[in-house]
Each structure stands twice: as C-alpha cells, then as structure tokens.
Design a protein around this nucleic acid. Structure first.
Length: 639
RNA sequence: GCCGUUGUAGCUCAGCUGGUAGAGCAACUGAUUCGUAAUCAGUAGGUCGGCGGUUCGAGUCCGCCCAACGGCACCA
C-alpha cells in the first residue's frame, strides 16, 4: 500500500508501487492528459517515476511554470534528436532552458544555415507527431563515458567526466536518440506541440572565447499554438518600440559608417538629451554636488599614472600630434577628477566633496558589441566622484542609492534590478577593508528596504560595486547607474586631505553615475515610452495646425505666445488637409495638436487634440498653456 | 574580436537561371483652401556599401574590406 497525499491534503491509496501518471489518471483523464511531470516530496520527477512509499505528490501540468520548463527542456532534446538524425556527424553538447525557450549547442564542421533550420524544425514536428516515448535510464558513470566516446560524442563524454563521483548518471532515450540529462522530461514527444526555431549563432564551448566555437540553435516552446503565437506577436510589438527604429522615424538621431558606435544627434534628439542633462544638473545641485569639466584629450603620462594605459589600453582611442606627444581620449573621467582634486589643498571640513562632471568618454568597444544607443563608443556620463572620509562613506552610499532610485521613479522605472559585485580574485587591499566596503554597499541597499543580487567575484580589482539594471523592449538588461568604491586611484594620485589634527590622510573615493550613459538612458526611455515621451521630455510639445492658409497668421501668433512661455511649439503651415497634418504629427507622437480655424481665430482659442486622439475641445490659449505647464511641472505622463 | 544574415533612390522594398535599374511614400512644381489619422496631377532623384577579379557584358558570379542586424565573447 502506498498512500499519496495530494496538494489539497486529500490522500489516495494505491496497491504497491505507483507512478505519478497513474496518480493523475486516478484523479481524472483531463489531468493525466495535461500532465508533463510531477513533484514527489517537492522533487521534480518524471511521470514514470516509481513511488515506492507514502509521499506528497503534485502533478505538474503544462500550465505550471515548472511544467513549461520541462516542455522547453524536452523540446531542446527533440531538437538534438532531429539534428542527429539529419546530420549524424554533429556532436551534441548542452541544451538548457532559457527565458521563453531553449537552445542547444552542437559541434558541427560547418555553420547551420537558415535552410538547415527549416529542415530541422520539420523533422522535429515529424518526431513529435510520432509520440515517441521518452525513457529514463540510470547508467554507470564509466560505462556512460565509454558509450559516448564510442559514438564519437567527445563533448558529452567530457561533460559526464566532469560530473562529481557518486552522482547518479541519468540518460534519456527517445527512439534511437539518447542524451545525458538530469531530467525530468515529458513522457513522450507528443506533448511537444508548439515550438519554433528562432535563430542560429556561434557560441564558445564552455563560454570561453579561447575554446572552439560551437553552433547554437535557439528556439521557443509553449504549451500550445495560441501561447506560441502570442509570444511571437509580443516580439513583433517589441520590435516596434526598438529605439533604433523609433530614432529614425521620429528624426532623433542616426549613425554613419564613418563613425561606428557614435551618434549623430538631430535637433529633436539633442533637445531631449539637453533636457536630461538639465534635469540631472538640477537634481545634483539640490543634492549638494558641485560640477567641473576636465579635458577630453590628455597626455599618456596621466593614463600611465591612473593605470589605464597598462590595463585599459585596448579600449582607448590614442592619438599622436605633430610634436610627437602621445595623447589618449578619455575612456573615464576619474583621472581628470583626481587631477582636479589634487590641484588644491582640501580640509576635512570640505568633505564629503561631491564632484559631478558630464564627461564625454570614448571607449573602443569590440565591433560586435555595438548596439544602437545602448552600446556606443562615444558617450556622455552623468559622472560624479565623491571624496569623503572612511566614516562618511556608508552614509554617502545610502544617499547615492536613494537619489538613483528616486530619479528612476520619476522617469517611470519602478522595477530596477540591483547587482552587488564583490571582491574578485585579483585585487588590491586587505580583506578587512573589503569587508567594510562591501558591507557599506550592501547596507546602502538593504537600509532602504531593497534587495540586491549578489555577484561574488565580479567586482573591480580596486573595489566592489553596485549596478542598477533596466530592461529594454525585448527583455535585454542594460546597466545604467553604478556606484563603485575605489581604493586604487586615491593611492595612485596620492590625493589627501588635511585632518583635524593637521595630519594628511587619504580620502575614500566613490564613483557614481545615475543615468550611467545619457545615450543609453535615452535609448531605454524611448523604448519604455514607445517613443511617446512624457510632455516634459517631448522634443516638440505642441504643433499648431491651421485649417487653411487664411489661418496661418493666427497660428503663428499662437506659436509665439506658447514659445514665449517656454513651450516648444511649432506650426505646420503647409498647404495640406487638416486630416493629413493630424496623421503626420500623430505619427510623430506630438503630445498636443492645436487645430485653428475660423472659430478659434475669431475667439482667441485653440482646439486641443491630445496624444492618442483625445479631443479636449476648444479653449483659450491661456487655458491650454496653464494645462500644459501644470503637467510639465509635475512631470506627468498624461497630456 | 568570433559565427551567421543583410547592404538597390531620403524611407520601405521589387529586380527569375549574368544582358546595362523599378514601385509606393517622402522631396520639388502646379491645382485644390479643405474641421480631427494619407486631395489630385506632373517633375526630379540611384558610381546597386567599397575595392579588386571572372566575363563580350556584373546589382546579379568569385575574393578582400566596411557597416548594420541576431547571437557568443567583452563591458578593469
């Protein structure tokens, strides 16, 4: 007798050994059909897992998040199965589940083409239709290694060899395909009903660029066709808000072959850019910062002193002048800030010294890394360096974190991932100091009731860091803000302050950026709002549209009034129908369209059409202005 | 940097197996003077990403380079 306790607390008794599938069947045929795996005493197992004694059992269906993972994992196996049938010389490696799908890496003498992908997908569908049972087998470790070696599957053999002694080696067999896997898997391939291969890419074996490159095939998988289509639709929608596409459509910026990774800002894009700077400048002044500006091009000796010449040379733009001096374009602002600090004498009374700089930095990023505004070679940081005493550090960190999150909130980013990167293997400074610095950063986050993700060993050699991560339209994460503690530069530049007892002491130096890169932040903003920026950020806030030529004069007078009041307003005096103008400026996502005809001209009014086709009716110019100004002042997202 | 894909007019794209480039939108000109998402007609516009090669002949085939796109690696 085996007593099975179900999630609702009810107990079912079975004669002898029972499987989760039998349990599901005992509950109902619908559940048995939807089942893909099960949880026995909290452990995820196959539906064929033998339950030999009393246990808590939960059936996992395709609707459960864990069930979906099983489906995706099994689909990865199906992919490998199809590839091995079509291209027996391909070697299998690994095939994990990722967000929205899976991938599988193969060693194959040539790259897979898009045509190969179609063939593979067809074969996968055929294999799924055959409803091939997926069976778990437990193997002896050495036997498994020998088995895969004999099959010419050297990568697989290597993976098994790296599994610690004593762990069970489980293989899954479906038809003539057999693969190492922890499982669990769906009971048969017929459960895999909605999948699509999406892309091929090169990927390095074990993620190391020094290793050989494998062929990675990506796919997505869902419980049913409907969910798959919904996902594909969502991808399409995300593409529409891609900032690179909107940047061109809204005439904000563009790129040129002559300057890969560097932005040509158009007037409208540049206005937004300036608004961001103005905003940040205001917030920083409020928060007790001062602002400096240091040179873009500085002598090699400075970079040798900072260590960049030795450690960052590959990423630096270097230039030589007629007099044979070697200069470098700054990749970071900190050496400039240190040089500024060192220029005068600083008292402990002056600390903390919060020194901001909107620094343009140049970094020679690898060509394959470039990505619109989100990864460029030439960008502007809202950088600042805080020089303080060790005692002040914790409080300063907390202030920075609070400021960052407050500002993100004001831009509509409520959910921000925070990463804490701690001491790497190669580092300077004692463990005691690292303890203190890491604690200061961690406390700054937890003190605000927030959580962080820990990335052990990912910190810089000179200190730990916090990173603030926002997500783009198609789910890619981008680091924006950062807060780093630096034990290196104060030393290298030998900077100091005069303490109370007249001794010279070394200040702590914090690096921080809130937007991070203005280019990147603006790119994310564009995607976040799908190009329809809130009124206060919109590069064109209103356009006056005269119905016909005889209203042009009045339209211009309205524009002048609004401009004088600080609103960026334009007129469209072209000889076009009003519907045409409305369409065009709607597509440009202008917050307010002000239609003026005989009635408005006669009464000193404007007929206001707010973004999204909302008709606010006719109102006096002053009333419209008051409305707009109120929304600008409150940084409202509504028009 | 590595793997793959792509590169034709300002934009979006067509151009079969090699025979000397085409559409829509935009622009310009003219007509229309219009009340909330595209008025009509006409005109002009391209060294087909760059360089080299094969060929009687290359947008089309081959090689190298550049850039973009999707990944990987990178992002002290």
């Amino acid at each position: 007798m085996v007593a099975v306790t179900l999630p609702d607390g009810s107990v079912k008794a079975f004669e002898g050994v029972v499987t989760p599938l039998q349990v599901a069947e005992a509950i109902g045929p619908g559940l048995a059909k939807a089942a893909v795996a099960a949880k026995v005493n909290g452990r995820l197992v196959d539906l064929t897992y033998p339950i030999t004694e009393d246990a808590n059992v939960a059936i996992v269906t395709e609707r459960d998040p864990e069930g979906l993972e099983v489906i995706r994992h099994s689909t990865a196996h199906l992919l490998a199965h199809a590839v091995k049938e079509l291209y027996p010389e391909a070697q299998v490696t690994i095939g994990p589940v990722i967000e929205n799908g899976f991938y599988y890496d193969f060693a194959f003498p040539r790259p897979f083409t898009p045509e190969d992908l179609e063939r593979i997908e067809e074969r996968m569908k055929a294999l799924a239709a055959q409803q091939i049972p997926v069976v778990r087998e437990e193997w002896d470790r050495d036997e498994a290694i020998r088995f895969f070696r004999d099959q010419g599957e050297y990568y697989k053999a290597e993976i098994i060899a790296s599994i610690p002694e004593g762990e069970t080696i489980s293989l899954y067999r479906q038809g003539n395909f057999i693969d190492l896997c922890r499982g669990p898997h769906v009971p048969d391939t017929g459960k895999l009903k909605a999948f699509k291969l999406t892309k091929v890419a090169g990927a390095y074996w074990r993620g190391d660029a020094r290793n050989e490159q494998l062929q990675r095939i990506y796919g997505t998988a869902w419980p049913d066709k409907k969910a798959l289509n919904a996902y594909l639709k969502q991808l399409e929608e995300a593409e529409k808000r891609d900032h690179r596409r909107l940047g061109v459509q809204l005439d904000l910026f563009h790129f040129e072959d002559v300057a890969p990774g560097s932005v040509f800002w158009h007037p409208k894009g540049w206005r937004i850019f300036q608004k961001l700077i103005n905003y940040m400048r205001e917030r920083q002044l409020e928060a007790g910062y001062i602002e400096i500006n240091t040179p873009d091009v500085m002598d090699r000796t400075l970079w040798e002193r900072s260590g960049h010449w030795q450690n960052y040379h590959d990423h630096m733009f270097v230039t030589q002048t007629e007099d044979e001096r070697v200069f470098a374009l700054k990749p970071m602002n900190c050496p400039g800030a240190c040089t500024w600090y060192k220029h005068g004498l600083h008292s402990y009374r002056d600390l903390p010294l919060r020194v901001a700089e909107f620094g343009k930095v140049h970094r020679y990023e690898p060509s394959g890394a470039l990505h619109g505004l989100l990864r460029v070679r030439h960008f502007t940081q809202d950088d600042a360096h805080i020089f303080c005493t060790p005692e002040q550090m914790t409080a300063e960190c907390a202030k920075v974190v609070r400021l960052i999150l407050d500002i993100y909130r004001e831009f509509g980013f409520e959910q921000v991932r925070i990463k804490l990167s701690t001491r790497p293997e190669n580092r300077i400074g004692s463990d005691a100091v690292w303890d203190q610095l890491e604690a200061a950063l961690a406390d700054a986050v937890t003190g605000l009731g927030l959580e962080y993700e820990l990335f052990p060993g990912e910190g810089a050699f000179y200190g730990p860091k916090l990173e603030f991560v926002l997500r783009d339209a198609i789910g890619r994460d981008w680091q924006c803000g950062t807060l780093q503690v630096d034990m290196n530069l104060p030393e290298r530049f030998d900077i100091e302050y005069v303490a109370e007892d007249n001794s010279r002491r070394r200040p702590v130096m914090l690096h921080r950026a809130l937007f991070g890169s203005l280019e990147r932040f603006l790119g994310i903003l564009i995607e976040h709002h799908a190009g329809a920026l809130p009124l206060w950020l919109a590069p064109v806030q209103a356009v006056v549209l005269p119905i016909s030529e005889r209203h042009a004069e009045y339209a211009v007078s309205v524009q002048k009034q609004l401009r004088a009041a600080g609103l960026w307003c334009e007129t469209d005096l072209r000889n076009e129908k009003i519907t045409y103008k409305i369409r065009e400026h709607s597509l440009q996502k202008v917050p307010y369209l002000l239609v003026v005809g005989d009635q408005e001209a006669a009464s000193g009014q404007v007929a206001v059409r707010a973004r999204g086709g909302v008709d606010l009716g006719a109102m006096p110019v002053a009333a419209f202005l008051a409305r707009a100004q109120e929304r600008i002042a409150s940084r409202s997202t509504e028009c």
